[in-house]
Amino acid sequence: MVQTVDCIGDSCPRPQLMTKKAVGQIDVGQVIEVQVDNPSSMEALPPLCDEMAATHLETVKDARCWKVYIRKD
């Protein structure tokens, strides 16, 4: 994992925009972790991967947020 995107307290569309920006800044094969506490934002990130040329690897529920792992393809 090369970068953590902290979207705690943010609602749509900010987490999606921040995720797109982060994926655009990393190299192919690298992974980012996006932290979100908004359920609709968490659900919106995996489908967004197709348009970012990325792969949703996993979403893990933490005590205070979801951690969404995305790899750039």
Rank of each mutant, 00 (worst) to 15 (best):
V68D: 00
A53L: 11
M42A: 12
C65A: 05
K61H: 13
G9K: 08
Q16N: 10
M1V: 12
S41W: 08
V5G: 10
S40W: 09
S11W: 08
I70S: 06
L45G: 01
V28L: 09
A63L: 13
S41T: 07
Q3R: 13
V68N: 00
G9W: 09
A44H: 04
K21Y: 07
L57V: 15
L48A: 13
Q25C: 10
V23N: 00
V68Q: 00
V31W: 12
K67L: 07
H56V: 02
C49W: 02
C49L: 01
D37H: 07
E43G: 11
P13G: 11
R71S: 10
S40L: 14
K20G: 14
V31I: 15
P46V: 03
I70W: 09
D73T: 14
P46Q: 02
D37F: 10
W66C: 06
V2P: 05
V36T: 13
I26A: 10
E51L: 07
E43W: 11
P15D: 01
D37I: 00
R71W: 04
A22H: 02
Q35F: 13
W66L: 04
Q16D: 05
V2R: 09
R14H: 10
I32G: 02
M42W: 13
E33S: 08
V34Y: 03
R14L: 08
Q30F: 04
D73H: 12
I8L: 15
V34T: 05
Q35D: 13
E33C: 09
D10Q: 14
L17A: 08
N38W: 14
Q25F: 06
E51T: 14
P47I: 03
I32H: 02
A53C: 11
W66A: 03
D37Q: 00
D10G: 03
K67C: 09
V31A: 05
G24R: 01
R64C: 11
M52K: 00
I70L: 05
Y69W: 09
E33L: 04
N38A: 06
Q3F: 06
M1E: 11
Q30V: 03
A53F: 11
H56I: 01
C7I: 05
Q35A: 07
N38D: 15
